[in-house]
Every structure is written in C-alpha cells, then in structure tokens.
Amino acid sequence: MTSYIIRRVLLFIPTAVGVSFIIFFLLHVIPGDYATTVVLGGEDRANLATQEEIERVRRELGLDRNIFLQYRDWAAGFFTGDLGKSLTNRIPVSERMLPRIAVSAQLAVMAVLIATLVAIPCGVIAAVRQDSLIDYGLRFFSMIFESMPNFWLGLLVLFALAVIFDWKPPISYKDLWENPWANLQTMFFPALVVGARSSAGMLRMTRSSVLEVLREDYVRTAQSKGLHRTRILFIHVLRNALLPVTTLAGFEVVILFGGQVVIEQVFQIPGLGQLLVQTVAGRDTPVIQAIIMFIALVVLLANLVVDLLYGLLDPRIRYG
C-alpha cells in the first residue's frame, strides 16, 4: 500500500508541473502579448498604442525577458502566494481570487452532495427494478438532464421561481458565516442545477455497475443460501458496485468546474468562474492563468484522492 501511495503521489508532481507549463505557454507564446492590453486599458483603440509605449510596458512587466525565466518566476510565485497583479486594476491576483475560491468551493460541495444523494439511490433502484417503468423513467430523465445545457436549466429554474412563486433569489451575495439563511437561499438553486447534470451521469454509472454485480456468482450463491434481499443488496452488491462510482465522482469534479463557470454567470454568484469569464473578456492574463492553474490543481488533487481511495477500498488495484 505504501509503495502504491508513493507511486501515485510521485505521478502527481510531474503532471501538475506539466499542466502549469502547458497553461503558461499557451497564454504567453501565442502572438499579441498582453502589454498591448495594458496600454490600451482593455479598450479597442489599437491605433492609439504607439510602439514605444508597448515596449515600455513590456519592460515594466518583464515580458521582454526569456520566457523560461518568466515561467520560473510565475511558478515560484505559486509557493509564495505572489501571482502577480491584475492588469486592469493592479490588485494582486491572489487577493482577487481568495474570496471567490470559498464561494466556488461551497457551490461545488453542495452540488456534489445533491448529485450523490440523488444519483446513487436512484441508480440502485433503476438497476434493481431493471426494465420497469421506474427504470425507464429514471434513465429518460437522466438523458434529458445530460442533453440540457445547464445554463438553460438555470434560466428555466429562475423563470419557474419567478412565475410560480413570484420569488427571486436575493440579488446581493451574502457570506455563509455572515448570513447563512440568505446565503443558502442564493446558493441552493445554482447547486441544484449544477448537481442535476452531474447526477445524470452518476445515475447511469451506478445503474450499470449494480447490474453487473447482480449477475456475479457470489450474488447467486447468496440468493440460493436464502439470504434476505435487502441483506444481499447492501452487503454483497453495493459494496462492490459502488467502487467504480467513486472513480466517476472524481471525474465529475472536472465536469462540475466547467458547469459552475456558466451557472455562476446565470445566478450572478461572485465565484471563481465569474471572475474567469470577466478576465477572459478583458484579456487579464495574470488572473486568467492563475485561475486556470488553480482549477487544474483542484482537478488533479481530486483525481489523486480518488485513486488513493480506490486503492484503499480495492486491494486488486494496489498490487496491479
């Protein structure tokens, strides 16, 4: 087990470094570096930027140096917390990101909770009652949720709330610790929408996984021994069937972050995704690269945790 952990953690480090490399070079090597953006103040006045001005800003920002040196400084900044300054308002990147990380994390946790609580029981029911009306219904709905763009689902939820209950989520965002009730009011529906999509995939995964285990010999043995159905389901089936679902849960984190970006926009939640969209529109490269790197790190960590968990739960993986 120890060697498995070490191997897996050692794999994490080069991957994280590689990802940072890809992100940094993607945002730097391609033409039109962001000195031009600074000179123009994010506005479309291309003819007003003189070459000298651009050169001056480039020197100020250190963009005229060797790209590998720039990368080294940026990567080192990750350990010291100095990620540079925003181009548009000169606020340190970390300062802009920190409060938003908490908001996005809360949304993500709530979404995963909702998704899991809905998906796993429904998936198990669908499998146990295979080919019944309830099975078809659940599968049909999961496909619908997967096909619906979640920003549209979000808009529909807002629409329904407004028309049916004449209710709008509070416009201004409140901190969870400051005003928990107002906070949950704003966060519940976005989390529901993000979770709905994740739960669709998880439901189908749970279903097919349970179906597979139900056909195993040891389940038949348990049945012929005359064990009670519930006992078979919980002791023999679920323990084995839910293993692959944990992998998927890790994968869902990836999808979740994509979905959250859009949903934060729909519900006007001041999270990381909203900041990302704003900064991409404004070409604020230092902020963009920091956010994307942060998201990548979260995803890689989630995958690491899932793999370790998997190794812990399933001895076959450890020695494989």
């Binding site: 590689g18 890809i22 993607l26 391609i30 999808i255 994509g258 991409v280 994307i292 990548a296 890689l300």
Partner: peptide, 24 residues
C-alpha cells in the same frame, strides 16, 4: 499519454476558454 493526462486535467469549458483567451 502523460501529456493527455495533463490535457484532461482541464474541464472542457475551461480549456476552451483558455484557448480563446490565448488566441486573443
């Protein structure tokens, strides 16, 4: 395969956003 692993650490929409941001 390692490069693909890294590539896949970025959610679809985020990766697409990064490319749109990079190409400017």
């Amino acid at each position: 395969q390692r490069i693909i692993d890294m590539w896949m650490a970025l959610p679809d929409l985020i990766l697409a956003l990064a490319i749109v941001a990079a190409l400017g």
